[in-house]
Nucleic acid binder design. Structure first.
Lengths: 175, 175
DNA sequence: CATAAAAGTGAGTAATCACTCACAAATGTA
DNA sequence: TACATTTGTGAGTGATTACTCACTTTTATG
């Protein structure tokens, strides 16, 4: 990934997240990135190719996060890490996640598998901890975390973060 | 609202929810609705005017729901009704809600006030029930319900609905 | 240095977009 | 019936879109 390609990816990511993919013309991406419009197509082939490159670029980081959690051996540690997830998103990653969440509603993202993996991971953890309905608990936990992430991504200066996190850790007896 | 206007609104709503507003050309709306493209502009002025009409049309039904809940006097009944909310959405309303949730990410919806109202309503209910941190509980409840709605709207034949609902009613001691 | 490959440009293109408008048909209203 | 208003049409318009291509500049390699 060259310097110029990253310039384009960052500009596109920002605009895609702000206005949506369809409402963002490639001319505007080029202008924001400070390159000619033709260069976008030389490097990424098409607008859709650029979108895919963005998703892959971000997907790698997501996979790394997952691997780290899956490495934990204690079920309590796994749950703690999973709960921490939406609270530990760096602000520099907000645009990426905003894009992911937007695409979810047009059914063209390729990150459902991560949700699936998180689901089975926490389901197993709940089971190990002796929960009666581990799958239901896992389902509910991920729903909550999805909601928290949504709230954090859409609310500027979301200051209830810490309280919400502590309340969740308390609910699952992880504090 | 005439017959023809409703035809247009329904066609547009379906396409907006499926593909997104920006990816839906007015020509396709006209074709789906079985009317000429010009008629859309005669009735709604612009594509954005059509979108606003759709949101108003749906907003009335949402307001009615809210009024019904606000009418309850017992805090437990209020919470029960609020929890019921995402589970009682009729499938014929799915497109509307998919559109609302999509627009949320482009920050051009006008339904945040409803969330605000729900927040203060359940906050008051939690307070009446003697919860230690009623605002935090309200915040978390709405986050969960938002997540449930998201899951239900995006998952075809979402069969964990009843279990999730019962688990929530149990958690808040409403069963 | 020479030369080939890669990176970068910007004017151009066909297609598509939201929207207009002159007109026709349908629906009042007396 | 006569006439005005509303409803509906579809061809047309200028603007914008994603994308191409002939060309220039930069970089890599011997």
């Amino acid at each position: 990934m060259t310097e110029r390609q990253l310039q384009i990816i960052h500009a596109a990511l920002q605009l895609f997240a702000e206005d949506g993919v369809d409402a963002t013309p490639t001319s505007k991406i080029a202008k924001t990135a400070g390159v000619s419009e033709g260069l976008i197509f030389r490097h990424f082939g098409s607008k859709d190719g650029l979108l895919k490159a963005i998703l892959e670029y971000g997907g790698e980081r997501v996979a790394a996060f997952y691997a780290k959690i899956a490495n934990e051996s204690q079920p309590k540690d796994i749950l703690r890490q999973i709960i921490e997830l939406p609270f530990s998103i760096d602000e520099s990653e907000y645009d990426f996640w905003r894009l992911i969440y937007t695409l979810k509603w047009q059914r063209r993202t390729h990150l459902e598998n991560i949700t699936e993996q998180m689901l089975s991971l926490s389901s197993k953890a709940f089971n190990d901890l002796g929960y009666e309905a581990p799958e239901l608990e896992a389902e509910l936990l991920l729903i909550v975390l999805d909601g928290v992430a949504t709230r954090a991504l859409l609310t500027e200066s979301y200051d209830m973060k810490t309280q919400v996190k502590n309340r969740l850790l308390k609910q699952y007896k992880l504090d």
